[in-house]
Computed example of a mutant assay.
Amino acid sequence: MISPNPEQRLALSYAPPETRQALKTLFSLDETLGAIVRTTREPIIGQMRLTWWYETLGRLDTVPAPAEPVLAALQNEVLPFGVSGAMLGKLTDGWEALLEPDLDAGAIERFARDRGRRLFDLAATIVSVTDDRIGLAGEGWALADLAQKLTETAGRELARVRARAALDQALQGRWPSSARALGALAVSARFDMTSGAAGSGSPKRVVRLAWHRLTGY
């Protein structure tokens, strides 16, 4: 499976032991879908590959996973927490938005909702937490990631502004202990959207993430 960046790996380690592997596997699916978009030059090929994942994920609800490590891990480690293959398949919608010829505000909003919010909402199901801030944090996290990768100035700035607003709202108040892995991801993303912030993995950021783990703030 694809390994997340070190700071994301640290944040996910904050999850309760009984849900930690399921969350790591869920985010590995996100990394896998993102790699499809990053490595595809022809949008139609990207759409075909995402369609394969959409259909194959849906079949996890009824048949054994094919010989593909991410799919097998999802079936064994994520589905037992009440997340269906059909739910996982809908994550492809968010990544498909980036295959649009023009990445306008609508496509960016769709990416935030269908990648970020859906991913974090599924993670919330795994950790058994109901909190509206989690989906909002997912939107901000996805937009922050997008803002760092876009080269087109207008789209990058729109994603950055939307990310900051969503993350600032999501990080208000104390986060429940079982959801602090997700809160730490939001804290990390907010650092990325702060001008002059220390780089990923710096001592200042690691201490801030640890503080969130300890206090929920």
Rank of each mutant, 00 (worst) to 15 (best):
L158G: 07
Q47G: 10
A73T: 06
R208G: 01
Y54E: 15
V83E: 08
A72W: 08
A107K: 04
F191G: 00
R164I: 08
M87L: 13
G94F: 03
A97W: 05
G82D: 12
L10F: 06
D192G: 14
A67C: 11
V37K: 04
G106N: 15
R118E: 05
M193V: 07
I134G: 02
F81A: 11
T194Y: 03
R115Y: 07
L171H: 01
R205G: 00
L57G: 04
F81T: 13
L171I: 00
A65S: 12
P69A: 06
Y217R: 15
L71H: 08
D93W: 13
I2V: 13
A210S: 06
A67N: 15
R59F: 11
L122F: 05
H212N: 01
M87V: 07
V63T: 14
R160P: 11
A170Y: 00
R190Q: 00
K24F: 13
W53L: 11
A163F: 02
P64Q: 12
P101H: 04
V63L: 15
A112C: 03
T32N: 02
Y54W: 14
R205V: 01
L79A: 10
T32S: 08
R213I: 00
G199C: 06
A181R: 04
T125E: 14
G199V: 05
W211R: 08
A15N: 03
E157W: 12
I2P: 15
